[in-house]
Amino acid sequence: MMDTLSPATRTVDVRRFGQRAARLAIASLYAELALYPKPGLVSLVDNGSHTDMNAVTFMRSLFSLRHYFRLIFHAGSNDAPFATLKRLGIEAEERMLRATGGINTHRGAIFSIGLLCAAAGRACAHGGEMTAAALQSHLRAGWGKELANHSVPVNERSHGLSAAALHGASGARHEAASGLPSVLQTGLGALRRTLAEGRGPRQARIDALFALMMHVSDTNVVHRGGPQGAAFVRIQASAFLHAGGTASNGWEAHALAIHRAFVERNLSPGGAADLLAASCFVHALTAEHER
């Protein structure tokens, strides 16, 4: 709590916490990249369903984002309007694309983790505890109306937006307007359950990824595989979790078989991967307050 601190001390604490939040954001993106087996997705082991990107591409992207999360945290701590957050996100995306040669590695994470950093900044400046519920509350209180009304420029034609228009996949904008429930309930809940059962961070991240694949309407999947591909992803994720997830014997072989099936079908749940990184970020950020 920071209510009793002087303004000068509070400013120092907000700055320090912003630096910590930015480090945790980058670390969470790296944790997602390093995870394996991860169906259809780029990892340090292989490129999944992708021929246009690899782990090096992701590392270049990560390096380009190292200042963005700190900047948007401080924007949130100053109750910046949504237009400011959007500008920072657009600038971060432009840096990412320059670093990757035009390849979209982290657009979803720029959006979701950026908003969570802004919400953390607002919570920090208001002197509240850093909990998942507080992050959701500050996200809605600070920018909920703008997120709900967030319009898409006519000339913006990302794969995700095209898929949403064609097949009704809700995507990141609907997630944010709803207070990021896939992160703050689905992903974070799966992480905490697996850890509480005594399994480690790797298993927790695998279980969280499969939970997100089962529950999230992923525009990346719909773009690549249409509604049939999206149904295949949900069915495979559900089968993995109903078998016990990482608590089951042979879970790693099962996850690897699903990975190979996704690669064969050119499926890549990139939206779920971004939300997994965001879930890891919230888990790390709130660990001291939600033990």
Rank of each mutant, 00 (worst) to 15 (best):
residue 170 S to W: 14
residue 171 G to S: 05
residue 171 G to W: 01
residue 171 G to N: 02
residue 171 G to H: 02
residue 172 A to I: 14
residue 173 R to N: 06
residue 173 R to Q: 14
residue 174 H to C: 05
residue 174 H to V: 09
residue 174 H to A: 04
residue 176 A to L: 01
residue 176 A to Y: 00
residue 177 A to K: 11
residue 177 A to V: 11
residue 178 S to L: 14
residue 178 S to A: 09
residue 179 G to D: 10
residue 180 L to G: 02
residue 181 P to C: 08
residue 181 P to S: 07
residue 182 S to D: 01
residue 183 V to R: 03
residue 183 V to H: 08
residue 183 V to Q: 11
residue 185 Q to G: 15
residue 185 Q to E: 07
residue 186 T to L: 06
residue 186 T to V: 13
residue 189 G to W: 12
residue 189 G to H: 05
residue 190 A to P: 05
residue 191 L to P: 02
residue 192 R to E: 15
residue 192 R to F: 15
residue 194 T to I: 12
residue 194 T to E: 01
residue 195 L to W: 04
residue 195 L to N: 10
residue 196 A to R: 07
residue 196 A to T: 14
residue 197 E to F: 15
residue 199 R to S: 11
residue 200 G to I: 13
residue 200 G to L: 15
residue 201 P to I: 11
residue 201 P to W: 10
residue 202 R to W: 04
residue 203 Q to T: 06
residue 204 A to F: 08
residue 204 A to R: 00
residue 205 R to N: 00
residue 206 I to D: 00
residue 206 I to Q: 01
residue 206 I to W: 01
residue 207 D to L: 05
residue 208 A to K: 06
residue 208 A to G: 08
residue 211 A to L: 06
residue 212 L to T: 14
residue 213 M to V: 15
residue 216 V to A: 00
residue 217 S to E: 10
residue 218 D to I: 12
residue 219 T to N: 08
residue 220 N to W: 13
residue 221 V to R: 02
residue 222 V to D: 01
residue 222 V to Y: 06
residue 222 V to M: 04
residue 225 G to Y: 05
residue 225 G to D: 09
residue 226 G to W: 04
residue 226 G to N: 03
residue 226 G to S: 08
residue 229 G to H: 05
residue 229 G to A: 00
residue 232 F to Q: 03
residue 232 F to V: 13
residue 232 F to H: 15
residue 233 V to R: 06
residue 233 V to T: 02
residue 234 R to P: 04
residue 234 R to D: 02
residue 236 Q to M: 14
residue 237 A to H: 00
residue 238 S to P: 09
residue 238 S to L: 14
residue 239 A to T: 15
residue 239 A to S: 09
residue 240 F to W: 15
residue 241 L to N: 12
residue 241 L to P: 02
residue 242 H to M: 11
residue 242 H to Q: 15
residue 242 H to V: 10
residue 242 H to P: 04
residue 243 A to Q: 12
residue 243 A to T: 08
residue 243 A to S: 03
residue 244 G to I: 12
residue 245 G to T: 04
residue 245 G to Y: 01
residue 248 S to D: 09
residue 248 S to L: 03
residue 248 S to H: 10
residue 249 N to P: 09
residue 251 W to E: 08
residue 252 E to A: 12
residue 254 H to R: 11
residue 256 L to Q: 03
residue 257 A to M: 07
residue 258 I to M: 13
residue 259 H to D: 08
residue 260 R to D: 14
residue 261 A to H: 00
residue 261 A to R: 08
residue 261 A to C: 14
residue 263 V to K: 11
residue 264 E to V: 14
residue 264 E to R: 10
residue 265 R to V: 13
residue 266 N to D: 08
residue 268 S to E: 10
residue 268 S to C: 03
